Lab assay of single mutants.
Amino acid sequence: MLYVKVKTEDGEELVLEVEGMTEDEIREELAKAGFKIEEIEVYEVEP
């Protein structure tokens, strides 16, 4: 499983499960949803 931890400019932290997306695609999708991203951390969790 691939997850991203996202910190927004307003200090909110989100953890999202993503599969088959690049970091650029993740940033693009979050921007479309109205999030202003300060930091993204991508990590993989073994089942």
Rank of each mutant, 00 (worst) to 15 (best):
V4P: 00
K32P: 00
L2T: 07
K5R: 10
E41M: 13
V45W: 11
E46K: 12
V42S: 04
T8Y: 08
V18D: 00
L2M: 12
P47D: 07
T22L: 05
E46W: 14
E46H: 13
V45R: 14
V6A: 04
E13R: 05
E17I: 15
R27K: 09
E12V: 13
V6Q: 00
V42W: 12
K32L: 08
E29L: 15
A31D: 04
Y43A: 04
E13G: 03
G20Q: 05
L30S: 00
V6G: 02
E46C: 13
K36D: 05
E39T: 14
T22C: 06
V18Q: 01
Y3V: 09
Y43V: 06
E17L: 15
L14F: 15
V15L: 12
E25K: 05
G20N: 09
D24N: 10
E19Q: 13
D24F: 11
E17C: 15
V42P: 04
V45H: 11
G34V: 02
G11E: 02
A31L: 11
M21K: 10
Y3E: 01
E29G: 07
E29P: 01
E12F: 14
M21P: 02
K7V: 10
K7F: 11
V15S: 04
T8R: 06
E41L: 13
V6M: 05
P47M: 09
E12C: 15
E46Q: 12
K5E: 01
L16D: 00
E41G: 06
E46Y: 14
E44G: 09
V45N: 08
I26A: 04
E25H: 03
K5A: 03
Y3N: 03
T8G: 07
M1L: 14
V15C: 15
V4S: 00
V15F: 12
E13T: 12
V6I: 12
Y3Q: 04
E46V: 11
V4Y: 08
E38R: 15
A33R: 15
L30D: 00
K5G: 02
T22I: 02
V18K: 02
V42T: 05
A33N: 05
E41K: 09
V42K: 04
F35W: 11
T8F: 13
E28M: 12
I37R: 09
P47V: 08
G11A: 02
A33L: 14
I40W: 08
L30I: 04
L14K: 04
E25F: 04
I37C: 07
E19L: 12
K32N: 06
K7R: 12
V6W: 08
V42E: 02
K7S: 05
L14R: 05
Y3R: 14
Y3T: 06
G34W: 03
E23P: 11
E41A: 08
T8L: 14
E38V: 15
Y43S: 05
E28L: 10
F35S: 00
K7G: 03
